[in-house]
Computed example of a mutant assay.
Amino acid sequence: MAKKRLVTAVDEDVYSLISEQSKSRGLSVYVFAGDLLTKASLNTEKHAADQLLAPHIRMAVQQELTRMSDQIIEMLVRIYMEGGTSRRLTQLLLAQTGGLDSNSVGSAMQIAWDNTYADMSVSLAGLTGWKAKVTKNSLLRVEPGQQAE
C-alpha cells in the first residue's frame, strides 16, 4: 500500500519517549511514529467493532445461561421427584410388608437418611467449596417426615 507523509506536532516529552523507543528498536523516529499511529488507528477500529458486537455477544451468552439454568432446574425437579417418590414407596413397603409401625418406619428412614448424608459428605470432601454449599442447604437437612419449604 502506498504511504503518505503526515506532519504533526507532539509535546516535547512525547517526542523524547518516541525518540528513545525508536532508537532502541533501530528505527527512525518517523518510521516508529508512523507504526504507532497505524497501530493506534487499527486498534481504534477494532475497539469500535468490539463495541458493536458486545451487545450481541452479551445477549447470546445470557440466552445460553438461561437455557442452562432451565435445564438444571428441570434436573433438580426430576431428582426431587425421584427421591421423594422412592422415599414414600420405601416407607409404604416397610409399613405394609414389614409389619412395622410408623415409629419403626420413621427410625429406619432416619438411619437411612443419616447414612446417606454421611456418605454424601465423604464423597464431596475433595470438591472445594461445594461440600459447604450442599451440606448447609436447608433442603438437605430436612428430616424424614418433615416437609421441605
Results as ranks from 00 to 15, higher is better:
50 D>H: 00
133 K>L: 07
44 T>R: 08
100 L>E: 01
52 L>F: 02
66 T>P: 00
73 I>E: 13
131 K>A: 00
135 T>R: 01
142 V>K: 06
27 L>G: 07
95 A>F: 02
28 S>E: 11
41 S>V: 15
29 V>L: 15
75 M>Y: 09
14 V>E: 09
89 L>E: 07
85 T>M: 08
7 V>Y: 12
86 S>N: 12
41 S>I: 15
139 L>H: 13
43 N>V: 06
108 A>M: 06
49 A>L: 06
126 G>L: 04
57 I>F: 09
49 A>R: 04
19 S>H: 15
32 F>R: 12
147 Q>G: 03
17 L>K: 13
149 E>D: 08
24 S>C: 06
102 S>C: 02
105 V>E: 01
39 K>Q: 14
56 H>P: 01
79 I>R: 05
143 E>N: 14
135 T>F: 01
69 S>L: 08
81 M>R: 05
140 L>K: 02
149 E>G: 04
115 N>A: 14
50 D>F: 01
125 A>I: 07
114 D>T: 09
67 R>C: 10
56 H>C: 02
144 P>G: 00
42 L>A: 15
112 A>G: 09
21 Q>M: 13
87 R>E: 06
122 V>W: 01
70 D>R: 11
65 L>P: 00
92 L>D: 08
66 T>K: 05
109 M>Q: 03
88 R>S: 12
128 T>H: 10
30 Y>H: 15
129 G>Q: 08
81 M>N: 06
120 M>H: 05
102 S>T: 06
112 A>H: 04
96 Q>P: 07
63 Q>Y: 02
117 Y>D: 02
77 V>I: 08
97 T>E: 11
56 H>M: 05
3 K>S: 12
3 K>I: 05
49 A>H: 01
9 A>P: 04
9 A>L: 10
101 D>F: 06
119 D>R: 03
82 E>W: 09
83 G>M: 12
22 S>M: 07
35 D>I: 15
38 T>P: 08
96 Q>S: 12
44 T>P: 04
149 E>H: 02
134 V>E: 03
104 S>E: 07
79 I>L: 11
